[in-house]
Simulated scan of single mutants.
Amino acid sequence: MNEGVEWAMHSCVNLCFIPGQAVTAKRLAAFYELPTAYLNKQLQALSRAGILSSTSGPKGGFQLAKAPEKISMLDVVVAIDGAEDAFRCTQILKAGPGAKASVDYRKYCVVSQSMRKAELSYRQELAGKTIADLVEQVIQLDPNAPENTRNWFANLKS
């Protein structure tokens, strides 16, 4: 999985702590000492997916485009990594001894089937958890996280 997925998830959580405020990619990147240009690519992908909105200009930046409870973790993963399955069966069994050209080995192969089953479980888990769920867990672990995040951004020198 692309490291940008992690960065995008954390950025979405942080944006929840400063609602209604557009935050630049530079400022979001500074929070975790990430490369601004690379994080900006992830934020742009989230914008194209309708997860974030972006505003240009001196007061511009990124903010959530919809409520955090409407953004699943799978939405973020798909926005960053694409909708393609992680496992792609190339049907190598067709080249093996005794192979039959008429068989769709994606459906017959036990490796393919096991990988597809695991991918389905993984996607269901991500689809069932929202950014709001993550925010709730962060607050349970650190009740000061929202205020600390707001203060950090408020005190950051552009």
Results as ranks from 00 to 15, higher is better:
1 M>A: 05
2 N>F: 14
3 E>Y: 10
5 V>Q: 07
6 E>C: 07
8 A>F: 05
8 A>D: 00
8 A>Q: 01
8 A>P: 02
10 H>R: 12
10 H>C: 03
11 S>G: 11
13 V>N: 00
15 L>C: 05
16 C>T: 12
16 C>D: 04
17 F>E: 12
19 P>K: 13
20 G>A: 07
21 Q>E: 08
22 A>T: 11
22 A>M: 12
23 V>T: 01
25 A>G: 14
26 K>W: 04
28 L>H: 06
31 F>D: 11
32 Y>T: 06
33 E>L: 09
34 L>S: 03
36 T>G: 01
39 L>R: 00
40 N>Y: 01
41 K>Q: 02
44 Q>Y: 05
44 Q>H: 11
44 Q>C: 02
45 A>W: 15
47 S>C: 14
48 R>D: 13
52 L>G: 07
52 L>Y: 10
53 S>I: 14
53 S>D: 15
54 S>A: 07
55 T>M: 05
55 T>A: 06
56 S>Q: 07
56 S>E: 12
57 G>I: 05
58 P>C: 00
63 Q>K: 10
65 A>H: 11
67 A>K: 11
67 A>T: 09
68 P>A: 14
68 P>M: 03
68 P>G: 09
70 K>I: 00
70 K>F: 13
71 I>D: 03
72 S>T: 15
73 M>E: 15
74 L>T: 01
76 V>E: 06
77 V>P: 00
78 V>Y: 00
78 V>H: 04
81 D>G: 11
81 D>H: 10
83 A>P: 10
84 E>Q: 09
84 E>M: 11
84 E>V: 01
84 E>A: 14
86 A>N: 12
87 F>M: 02
87 F>S: 01
92 I>M: 04
92 I>Y: 00
93 L>M: 09
94 K>C: 01
94 K>T: 07
97 P>E: 09
97 P>L: 07
98 G>A: 04
101 A>V: 07
101 A>Q: 09
102 S>H: 11
103 V>I: 15
104 D>C: 06
104 D>G: 02
106 R>E: 14
108 Y>K: 08
112 S>P: 00
113 Q>S: 13
116 R>K: 10
117 K>S: 05
118 A>N: 15
118 A>M: 11
119 E>A: 14
119 E>K: 12
119 E>M: 11
120 L>V: 03
121 S>N: 10
122 Y>C: 12
123 R>A: 02
123 R>S: 02
125 E>N: 08
127 A>T: 14
131 I>F: 13
132 A>W: 13
133 D>E: 06
135 V>D: 06
137 Q>A: 15
138 V>N: 02
140 Q>M: 06
143 P>E: 04
144 N>E: 11
147 E>N: 06
148 N>H: 09
148 N>V: 01
150 R>D: 05
150 R>H: 02
151 N>F: 02
154 A>P: 04
154 A>G: 04
154 A>S: 10
155 N>M: 03
157 K>T: 07
157 K>A: 08
158 S>G: 12
